[in-house]
C-alpha cells in the first residue's frame, strides 16, 4: 500500500503540470483581461497595475513565475477582489463547501446504496420500478430546477426552512443546510442507486451467490453479507470523482442559496478574467480529483482481496 501511494504521488506531478499549463494558456487565449471593462483605466494607471501583477511580462515568463510561486504554495492575488489573495478566497469558501458537500456525499451513500440493493433484490417488481423511476427523475431534472423548487416549497409556501444558507448573526445552521444538502445530494443518490442496482444484479447471478444459497444461508445474509461487497466496486469508482466535485461545490446551488463556497469561483473567475483565481480553483480541484482517485484505489484493495495480492 505505501508503494502505491508513493507511485501515485509521483505520477500526480506531471498530471498537475499538464493541467496547470493547459489552464494557464487557455485562460490567456480568451479575449479581454482582468482590468478591461466598459470603463477604462487611465493608461498610466493600467500600466502600473499590469506591472504590479507582472502582467506586462511575456507570457512565457508569467507562466514560469506562476509555476515557481505555485511550488512555493503561493496562488497569487485575486484581480477581481484586490483586497484578497486567491488562497484566502479558497480558504474562506472551503469550510462551507466541505461541510455541505460532505453531508451531501454521506446522504447520497446512505440513501443511494440501500435503494439500489433493494431495487436489485426486488428486480422487475413495482418496488424496483418506482425506485428506478424516482432516480431517473433525480438524474434528469437539473439542479437549477430542483433548487428553486425546494426553496419555493419549503421556504416560501411552507415556511419551514430558510432560503439562504448563511445568515448574518447565526451563520450556517443545521436548518440552513437542509435544502442545499438535498439539492446537492439528489442527483448523486439517483446515480448511486442505479449503479448499485445494475452491479448488484450482475453479482447476484454469479456462481458464488448460487453456492451461498445452496449452503442454505438466508437470502438477507447472502445479499448484505456476500453480494454487497463485490457489488460496490463500480460504486466506489464512481463516488471518487463525484466526491471531489461535491466537495468543491456547485455554482448553481451556491448561487441559489447564497453559499459562500468555492464552486462559484470557477465561473466568476472565468467571466471576470481573474486569471489567478481560475488557476487557483483548477489546481485545487485537480489535487482533489487525484487524491480521491487514490482513495478509490485503496478502497478497491480493501473490498477486493484479489487486488491486494496482485
Amino acid at each position: 500500500m505505501p508503494g502505491l501511494i508513493f507511485k501515485r504521488f509521483l505520477s500526480a506531478i506531471p498530471t498537475l503540470l499538464v493541467l496547470v499549463t493547459a489552464a494557464f494558456f487557455l485562460m490567456r487565449a480568451v479575449p479581454g483581461g482582468p482590468f478591461a471593462g466598459e470603463r477604462n483605466l487611465p493608461p498610466q494607471v493600467e500600466q502600473n497595475l499590469l506591472a504590479a501583477y507582472h502582467l506586462d511580462e511575456s507570457l512565457g515568463r508569467q507562466y514560469l513565475r506562476y509555476l515557481v510561486n505555485l511550488c512555493k504554495g503561493d496562488l497569487g492575488p485575486s484581480f477581481q477582489y484586490p483586497d484578497y489573495d486567491v488562497a484566502e478566497l479558497i480558504a474562506a469558501g472551503l469550510p462551507y463547501s466541505l461541510q455541505l458537500g460532505g453531508l451531501a456525499f454521506l446522504l447520497a451513500l446512505a440513501l443511494g446504496i440501500p435503494a439500489g440493493v433493494v431495487a436489485a433484490r426486488r428486480a422487475n417488481t413495482w418496488v424496483d420500478a418506482s425506485i428506478m423511476g424516482v432516480s431517473l427523475v433525480g438524474i434528469s431534472v437539473p439542479n437549477f430546477v430542483v433548487a428553486p423548487l425546494l426553496v419555493l416549497v419549503f421556504a416560501i409556501y411552507l415556511d419551514w426552512l430558510p432560503a439562504m444558507a448563511v445568515e448574518a448573526g447565526s451563520g450556517m445552521g443545521l436548518r440552513n443546510m437542509v435544502l442545499p444538502v438535498i439539492a446537492l445530494a439528489l442527483p448523486q443518490i439517483a446515480y448511486i442507486a442505479r449503479i448499485t442496482r445494475s452491479s448488484m444484479l450482475e453479482v447476484l447471478s454469479a456462481g458464488f451467490i448460487t453456492m451461498a444459497r445452496a449452503r442454505g444461508l438466508s437470502s438477507r445474509r447472502v445479499l448484505w453479507g456476500h453480494a454487497l461487497r463485490p457489488a460496490l466496486l463500480p460504486v466506489v469508482s464512481y463516488v471518487g470523482p463525484a466526491a471531489a466535485a461535491l466537495l468543491t461545490g456547485s455554482v448553481v446551488v451556491e448561487t441559489i442559496f447564497g453559499i459562500p463556497g468555492i464552486g462559484r469561483y470557477f465561473v466568476q473567475g472565468a467571466v471576470n478574467r481573474d486569471y489567478t483565481l481560475v488557476m487557483g480553483v483548477v489546481v485545487f480541484y485537480g489535487v482533489l480529483v487525484i487524491a480521491f482517485n487514490l482513495v478509490v484505489d485503496i478502497g478497491y484493495r480493501l473490498i477486493d482481496p484479489r487486488l491486494r495480492r496482485a
Partner: peptide, 20 residues
C-alpha cells in the same frame, strides 16, 4: 446593516419572499 450577496435575481426574489 447587512448587505447580502444576491448575485442571482431569481434567488434574491425568493429570499425576499421568504422574508429574509
Amino acid at each position: 446593516v447587512i448587505f447580502y450577496n444576491t448575485a442571482d435575481d431569481g434567488a434574491e426574489l425568493k429570499r425576499y419572499r421568504a422574508g429574509e
